[in-house]
Design a protein around this nucleic acid. Structure first.
Length: 266
DNA sequence: ATGGTCGACGCTCGA
């Protein structure tokens, strides 16, 4: 089974490219982030015509996550237990940043971790809270079933090691590489979810995101921030992974490239 | 790749 994750940066703008990606690589399940639309705006038909079912959650033009599958789509869950809301008091609202579904016997989570914005922005605390809640939820899922194959796939907005950024100096004083964010990422690893892609996509210079500005992509100035973290029952089934860097090329590219993971039959 | 970002509910914000 082949699963993948991709921050598509607007599904309405990029639906043709996403469906072509699914077909070109024979992908069974795709976790999408930043669909940037409401459920009623999601372009379902091109996916259905290609043989895929879609579960999506999106409340407005921001965020939005989906799971696209041609091997079943069961037990769809919007958000996870304890997922923080954004805002205060009456304005507190859940954002469309997490969606779970069981596809071909694998529990897939499409996750869009909050950006953080800056080291002194309330969004950074939200990001850390969100990751703490995810760690606790994940710990609970593994307590229920230690052998469950679970894939936490998405845009983590964290570069876990110095090797995962084009310049350590550039990111000093910025988000994505701070000790607090890296500790929050490691917290999810510590409860049993391992990065299953790195050993198959070694660095340095291996990235999944390149800023649109400053010719970052041709200059190879990127970050590795998109990951599949697998439970033990998932990790032992991983037989390969790759980053489809070609998807960052050309006109109409997302600023993220897809990450693809191959699993043995369960 | 030969310039200088892109997407959205856009005259501004979020990434």
């Amino acid at each position: 089974m082949r699963i993948a994750t991709w921050n598509c940066n607007s599904i309405r703008t990029r639906v043709d490219r996403v469906v072509a990606f699914l077909e070109r690589h024979d992908v069974d399940v795709l976790a999408l982030q930043e669909t940037k639309c409401r459920d009623d705006q999601f372009p379902m038909m091109p996916f259905q015509a290609a043989g895929y079912d879609v579960a999506h959650v999106g409340y407005n033009q921001w965020n939005g996550v989906a799971v696209v599958s041609r091997v079943g789509l069961e037990d769809v869950q919007v958000g996870f237990e304890g997922m923080p809301t954004w805002g205060e008091g009456e304005d507190a609202a859940a954002e469309a940043r997490a969606l779970g579904a069981t596809c071909g016997g694998v529990r897939i989570w499409s996750l869009y971790v909050p950006n953080g914005r800056s080291l002194v922005d309330p969004h950074l605390l939200y990001k850390l809270d969100w990751l703490r809640a995810l760690r606790e939820a994940g710990e609970g899922w593994l307590r229920e079933d230690p052998e469950a194959p679970i894939a936490l796939m998405g845009d983590w907005n964290i570069a876990p090691t110095d090797e995962d950024v084009w310049s350590v100096e550039y990111y000093e004083g910025r988000t994505h590489t701070s000790p607090e964010e890296r500790a929050a990422f490691q917290g999810v690893v510590d409860v049993g979810f391992a990065d299953v892609t790195r050993e198959h996509t070694p660095g340095p210079g291996t990235y999944t995101y390149w800023d649109y500005t400053q010719l970052a992509f041709p200059k190879r100035r990127g970050m590795r921030i998109d990951f599949c973290l697998g439970s033990p029952g998932l990790a032992r089934r991983v037989e390969g992974a790759f980053i489809d860097r070609d998807e960052r090329k050309g006109k109409g590219a997302s600023d993220h490239a897809p990450v693809v993971v191959d699993l043995t039959v369960g």
